[in-house]
Design a protein around this nucleic acid. Sequence first.
DNA 1: AGAGGTGGTG
DNA 2: CATGCACCACCTCT
Length: 608
Amino acid sequence: MEFKFDPENPKYEYITERSHYDKVIKELENVNVVSVDTETTGFDPHTCSLLLFQISTPDKSYIIDTRALDLKTLPEIKDILEDQKKIKLLQNAKFDYKFIKKHTGIEMYNIYDTMLAEGVLTAGLSGKMSSLKTLTKDYLGLDMDKNIRKSFIGLKDINFSEEQLKYAAIDTFVLFPIFDAQIPKLRVRGVVDTAKTEFAVTKVIGEMELRGVYIDRGKWSNIIKNLKIRRDELTQEFYDEISGLYQYNSLDLFGNTAPPININSNVQLLELFNKRVGLNLPSTGDPILETVNHPIVKTLREYRKYEKLISAFGESLLDKINPVTKRIHPQFNQMGAATGRFSCNNPNLQQIPRNQPEAPFRECFNPAEGYKFVISDYSSMEMRILADLSGDEKFITAIKNGYDLHSYTAALMFGLEYTEDFKKKHPDLRQAAKAINFGLMYGMGPGRLAAQINVTPELGKEYMEKYFSSYPSVRDFLKKVASEAVRNGYSATPGGRKRWYKMPDKSDPDYKKLIGSIERQAKNHPIQGTNADAMKFALVSLYERLKREKIDAYILLSVHDEIVTECNADFAEEFKDILSEEMVKAAEVFVKKVPIASDPFVGDVWEH
DNA sequence: AGAGGTGGTG
DNA sequence: CATGCACCACCTCT
């Protein structure tokens, strides 16, 4: 392949003086596409610093040493980065966005992110985001030495070697040919709009991560402390109950009897239950243990509740509090799920347990001083999307009328009259309908349904059929999505987001099973994916409105169908309606036949 | 290091 | 034919 740069000898200018900068900046002002990268002393913009800022054309890289030249004093750079027309090519733009914003105040606009573009092009095919090394190898056939990157970590006061500067230059050069190769692919596959959405979202997520969220350390520790007390009691209780079943109780270094087994080892628990207690369990998961009436099992189940909370949400979360901001800054991966949803880690705030009397974890998340939480979530969003996508008349009417959907479904299925107090009169029927309503969105079959609502397989099948005769268009829709996914190798949301499937070989012994799995994923994808599309639109339009109207509010978290913000306390009540309005407007772009509802509230704790 | 089991969220 | 989607953290075991 021909490149405009020489991979062995890239052309660059290393800029440490203002006069030099003044000379070269003019060359950038008339360029439509630049690539941008930074070299930093680490990964956290709050505790690490910027070393180099590279801005490049296809054949020349300008490497500004930000220790010698402060970008804050260079308005031309700000103009270029914030220019709405100039395209900025980056790999994993969110990372650079955060460092640039934090250390210079510049808010980069019009980003093209090669990593996100590739994510859009391969959603569903690979769980991981592509590194620049991988993209460079795949698109350009070049091998990149990424070891040099490590040489920047922790450095403050060094003179860069030629090797380091070449590395910094190459990183920006490869983005041009990758960009050129991705663009036609995005067009051919019809995912240009999805890519644009992702590019717009990335700066919003960058801002969100920079802001972080406050957590009350003392309150959190106190919850953990109390959970540990109860867990330790249960551990003791468990060992007391099983000690008689073990012949030899070994002693530890201090002569105390040591526990005969590790309570956390499922292998050892299974041995205990099946060889010593005389049960016959296939696994030690709660769905199995639930069915066993035995004191040891009861103690274990109780122990596990506490152990789970302590191990997964204990002190490890407090370790993530940033020393500078005193807040938690989780990472949001905007292409984290194959469906288009975000995933979240370090820590995963999307899985903090709902408040319970003994463990009110979400009460530990509080707004900054002088601010209020303003939180809103879409109500029954996925049901509304299913109603809209299928176009089912009765389903849509029920939502428009504000009926309790599970009750209404049950009434239809069992030929009863829908009334306001249906839930009270027929809780079991409503429960069955609810199980179907949710299960269907996951491609559930009659067998699983029967097991869940505790009826015979025959009855499960019958219920399923009753459901589909009540909402015939839902059946047609799900069938169509599944068969098209198998035929085309992808499924799509109305917004155009696609999820690809790796089609199994016909000779594969698991062929049918794999096809079945694709069909279920395909049934779910337009529903979950449309929710994700709406959420992403909402985040972008909300962010732009905050900017435009100079509202003193910040987006903190996004949890699938919920947005958590903090707003100046004086404006919180007004902002409540703005948040809700933006969420509804965003969803209405994709959902046309069914009304959208978003339920906002103002508060001092994260609870909904 | 990575897989498998378990369990938290939407 | 087999039979519910999407994630991440922590644990044990190999």
